[in-house]
Design a binder for these strands. Structure first.
Lengths: 197, 197
DNA sequence: GAATTAAACTAATAAGCGTTAGTTTTGTAA
DNA sequence: TTACAAAACTAACGCTTATTAGTTTAATTC
């Protein structure tokens, strides 16, 4: 009768959620079973229900934790008086680091949000939409202040978000490129096509 | 007893594969059932098996059709003598158009390949790896020929592929932006940070 | 050491899954 | 009209699913 190991600062629920993120990232939410999850932890499936409510609740926890982290960071950035280009750079760096440090969770939030049920699905999409709108507004400010070229801000934002999302693939190539080098390369690629010369 | 409708140029199998792509894109492969697929076509689930082998075979067809389309196009491009920047532009435009014209299939190939079984999984990943290697080599040529800045070619390729992949999201915003405008915006964003000035 | 609580276990549930077998209907060609 | 083939149907198979109920074990508290 092996118990779920959990140190002082993490509850057993948090252990389960972390393992769920790993499993959902590897196999996808729908293709992951509670038995598999339990096995990866070392208990029976039914034992999980002493700590969590349901499978779908695990997905909810993962998705909204990630969404909230991004929202909170954007709040902080907006409350500074830096140039727009610095703000955008800061945001891009945050995305890159979230992807590298919370790989499983960010991946799951990006790929498995579709499996959320209402009203969580709508909430999640709404939160993401608002986040994007705020980024678009930021780029727009950069254009008005002549920091950026006169591009379509909506396209720019989605290009940036997509490019940063592509860091998913760097978990495959991790050995070949240094993280900091990677970060500056992507930033250079994305910004120098954007910043007025 | 409704029959599967199919015009002269499309077999019933192709109709099923197309509907499968739509369903898999919307709900994910694992979360899609054969009964749902059948319903979207207007027959019973078992009737599908007069035309197809299995559920997983549908995913295989979709994934490898997309992969082959990209490979074939790259073959054609490599057999021309254009400047590297033109080749790359051509490839980016092809990606954009594949995404816009074969949305469901490209989406499924991008997101659901994980659910493939061996040996198809390995074949698919290998084909993708080779494709990326050829793009990296192309960018490398551009650097050697001084057409591009001295960036990390591997990072550049993944940034480009990821950014183009982000066109997925434009099916949400389709009304707001014209396709051609979108295409040139993305190209400008990606290339003008790359091309030597 | 006894009592209590936390958290594991076993067993079972009902529902849904992909797929198959066997049968019936439909469309086509002789 | 008859014969044949294509493609639909119904019914069922065995399996897996998430989840629940009830029980037992382990850890904690008194």
């Amino acid at each position: 009768m092996a118990r779920i190991v959990s140190s002082k600062n993490t509850t057993k629920k948090e252990v389960i959620i972390k393992k769920a993120a790993i499993l959902f990232r590897k196999k996808g939410f729908a293709a992951s079973s509670m038995r598999e999850l339990a096995e990866s932890i070392g208990v029976e499936a039914s034992s999980l229900y002493n700590h969590i409510g349901s499978k779908i609740e695990l997905l909810q926890s993962i998705c909204f934790k990630v969404a909230n982290d991004f929202t909170i960071h954007l709040n902080e950035i907006e409350n500074t008086t830096s140039p727009v280009v610095s703000k955008l750079e800061n945001i891009i760096r945050f995305h890159i680091n979230m992807m590298l440090n919370n790989y499983d969770e960010v991946f799951v939030a990006n790929h498995e949000w579709k499996q959320l049920e209402e009203p969580f699905l709508s909430n999640f999409l709404n939160q993401r939409k608002i986040y994007e709108s705020r980024l678009i507004e930021l780029v727009n400010q950069g254009i008005l202040k002549k920091e950026f070229k006169n591009i379509h801000p909506q396209v720019a934002v989605l290009t940036i978000l997509s490019a940063v999302r592509g860091l998913e693939f760097w978990h495959r190539h991790k050995k070949n490129v240094k993280i900091k080098e990677l970060e500056s390369n992507i930033l250079d690629h994305l910004l120098n096509g954007l910043i007025r010369k």
